[in-house]
Write a protein that binds this DNA or RNA. Structure first.
Lengths: 259, 259
DNA sequence: GAGTGGATTTCGCAT
DNA sequence: ATGCGAAGTCCACTC
């Protein structure tokens, strides 16, 4: 019998009855559980699904999230986001693991008739997570280094609300013309262009004079180039990586002025 | 020593050296692996991230997908979709597990200094997965039972391409007027309305006469109701569940005519 | 609590 | 390969 204080307790080929006890205990102590065995799954809620028997990995986390993973695929085949209530019950030598969510009302039930492994985990994890090169990073980079757009560009505001939504950056060019900047961290598609067009139209109708629209992205989808030209919008190539590099320079401190 | 044919082989608290051997062997045999231990993670690719040390669950699947899960959250903190090449190497008593992707060029490296559990899996999973109440189900339900839209409605085509994209359903009402139907499986927001508006505009400009636009969804976002009216579009309440029920009736066979 | 938009979105389908 | 849109998307943030 492994010590109760080990971060990982493992039970191999437990009987269904034994598994139920271990899992019930794990749930009541808010442990993270890993179950591997032969199972089938029903889901009812926003949609509904039925997964027929097979061997899978089930993870029940401390925060009430549930994942059912097959041996292929990035995504779980069934799941439930955090906040579920877990239940484990025995019915005719079948173990039922339920994850119940209130809003929206949803249930995932996993039925096991054979468990190869039940593991009870107590993981200590306080490590920080830092992500770079997001769209937000691109915005910050442009705000600290407006010449990335073009010489003489001066940001006025960012995340400014106009009727259709929020403009990423709004500013003035070297000629004093108004400029709306729309940022995308990956290849810009039709949607990005139409979004920018709506912002430009909206600003134009308010100020009643010329407004430039500049789409900033690492690249632009092929068919969309024409749409961009038709709408008299402009494109400026800029990659999230380049932006991340700029932000990693000492001058990031300039940013603080904006916050 | 567990049999090589067991679907689940478990190694508890292996040394780093031993773990490397097990993992290398698992990779070369295309097994699914579960690693639990103290690790830190670097990611470089479309974006970049750094995860500082902590105890986590790592899954390496047969198809080359990688998941790094913390003890909370539905989503993995780091990951790589299927198609990666895995490597396991030892550097100064630290185990490096690498997942390398070619297109886009990306790398996730997980560094372990302590492993509590290494499990090598050989899961048999041929169970079918069936999902109900998707947007596609709603489309099918309307095609088999057009009166769901309104009495006298007759679908003409579906997934028909017009300039802005694909119309979900296109048909004719009891008065002979053209109708564009846009389907959403959940509360319709601004985007859905604008999408429908573009389709209606596009068809109108082609046929040069009145075209109705009907948004089909379980409900409509509050502020969006006004937008809908402004654009002279209509709304028809219909839930994916109701559609799924209709499809579960024996008459589904009518559907085959469409396929 | 609802609405809005981003995401290392992933995934599937069509061109 | 690329483009496009859905997803049981999830998630963070605002109102």
């Amino acid at each position: 019998m492994p010590s109760e204080k080990s971060p990982v307790n493992v039970f191999q080929n437990p009987s269904i009855v034994r598994a139920k006890e271990i899992i019930k205990n794990g749930i009541s102590h808010r442990k993270t559980l890993i179950l591997i065995g032969n199972c089938w799954v029903d889901y009812h809620g926003r949609a509904g699904s039925k997964l027929f028997p097979g061997e899978r990995i089930v993870i029940m986390k401390e925060d009430g999230s549930l994942l059912v993973h097959r041996s292929t695929g990035y995504e779980p085949v069934n799941w439930q986001p955090p906040g579920c209530i877990f239940e484990a019950n025995l019915k005719e030598n079948v173990l039922e693991v339920k994850a119940i969510r209130r809003k929206p009302a949803e249930t995932v039930v996993v039925y096991f008739d054979k468990l190869y492994l039940v593991s009870v985990l107590d993981l200590e994890d306080f490590g920080e997570f830092a992500l770079h090169a997001s769209e937000e990073d691109m915005q910050k980079a442009i705000l600290t280094e407006p010449s990335l757009i073009e010489p003489g560009f001066k940001p006025v505001t960012y995340e400014k609300k106009v009727e259709p939504g929020f403009m990423d950056i709004y500013g003035i060019d070297s000629q004093g013309r108004f400029v709306v900047v729309e940022i995308k961290r990956k290849t810009a598609g039709k949607e990005a262009v139409l979004q920018l067009a709506r912002y430009v139209e909206s600003v134009k109708s308010m100020v009643n004079r010329e407004v430039r629209g500049i789409l900033v992205a690492p690249s632009i989808a092929k068919g969309v180039q024409r749409l961009l030209e038709t709408l008299k919008l402009e494109f400026k190539a800029l990659s999230p990586k380049k932006c991340a590099e700029i932000l990693s320079k000492p001058e990031i401190k300039k940013l603080e002025e904006f916050l």
